[in-house]
Simulated scan of single mutants.
Amino acid sequence: MDVRTFWDLIATLGGWPLADEITPFARLEEELRTVRDCEEFEDLLTKCLFDLDRSDLANAGRRRSDDSFLYYRAAVVVAGEDAYRSMLHGRPEEFRRFTDGTVPSCEGLLYVAQHAFERITGETWQYVGELDYETGSNRAQW
């Protein structure tokens, strides 16, 4: 899966804020049809979340916990490629709009590849990529 395909798949979510926390992600899971799709989607998502794992963004938002900061970064990805690129290029003040907590969570994005893999194979997801998206993993940016 190339980067363009990844962002096209993200666009199927309908942007941010989401209408609800389940339906858009279930539809996206159905778009992943092979094990390779699942792994490549996971790698590209992880790269985006890793790139957004920065102290300037954490300090710009209403960070309540490491988990909430991860979910806010997921919201940026759900908002699409333009929002993601805006955060990467020195606009951390715009991150605040993803942290007000009054819209449905984007945590479900983190499980799209896993759910799709388990649907396809009937097996438990064990995939571990090269990067980690947990808060603080991008040590160079903290």
Score class of each variant (00 low, 15 high):
residue 115 H to F: 14
residue 95 F to L: 02
residue 109 L to N: 12
residue 120 I to H: 02
residue 97 R to H: 04
residue 98 F to N: 04
residue 63 R to A: 07
residue 101 G to T: 10
residue 26 A to Y: 09
residue 62 R to Q: 08
residue 102 T to M: 10
residue 52 L to C: 01
residue 14 G to V: 10
residue 23 T to L: 01
residue 123 E to Y: 06
residue 78 V to M: 05
residue 12 T to G: 02
residue 111 Y to H: 13
residue 81 E to N: 13
residue 72 Y to P: 12
residue 119 R to S: 01
residue 80 G to K: 09
residue 56 D to Y: 01
residue 106 C to I: 00
residue 114 Q to C: 13
residue 3 V to L: 11
residue 64 R to V: 12
residue 71 Y to G: 03
residue 106 C to G: 03
residue 34 T to N: 12
residue 105 S to I: 04
residue 41 F to R: 07
residue 106 C to N: 02
residue 17 P to R: 00
residue 103 V to F: 13
residue 98 F to Q: 08
residue 16 W to D: 00
residue 27 R to I: 02
residue 142 W to R: 07
residue 34 T to Y: 05
residue 120 I to W: 01
residue 123 E to L: 14
residue 100 D to R: 13
residue 39 E to Q: 14
residue 119 R to M: 01
residue 82 D to P: 02
residue 109 L to A: 04
residue 105 S to Y: 06
residue 98 F to A: 08
residue 112 V to A: 03
residue 115 H to E: 13
residue 48 C to E: 06
residue 68 S to P: 01
residue 49 L to E: 05
residue 37 D to R: 09
residue 43 D to G: 06
residue 67 D to M: 12
residue 93 E to D: 09
residue 22 I to D: 15
residue 127 Y to S: 06
residue 62 R to H: 09
residue 79 A to W: 13
residue 97 R to Q: 15
residue 114 Q to R: 15
residue 1 M to E: 09
residue 106 C to K: 00
residue 106 C to F: 00
residue 8 D to S: 08
residue 98 F to G: 06
residue 70 L to V: 11
residue 44 L to M: 08
residue 2 D to S: 08
residue 36 R to A: 05
residue 133 Y to G: 00
residue 69 F to V: 06
residue 86 S to C: 10
residue 108 G to L: 04
residue 8 D to P: 10
residue 38 C to K: 13
residue 14 G to R: 09
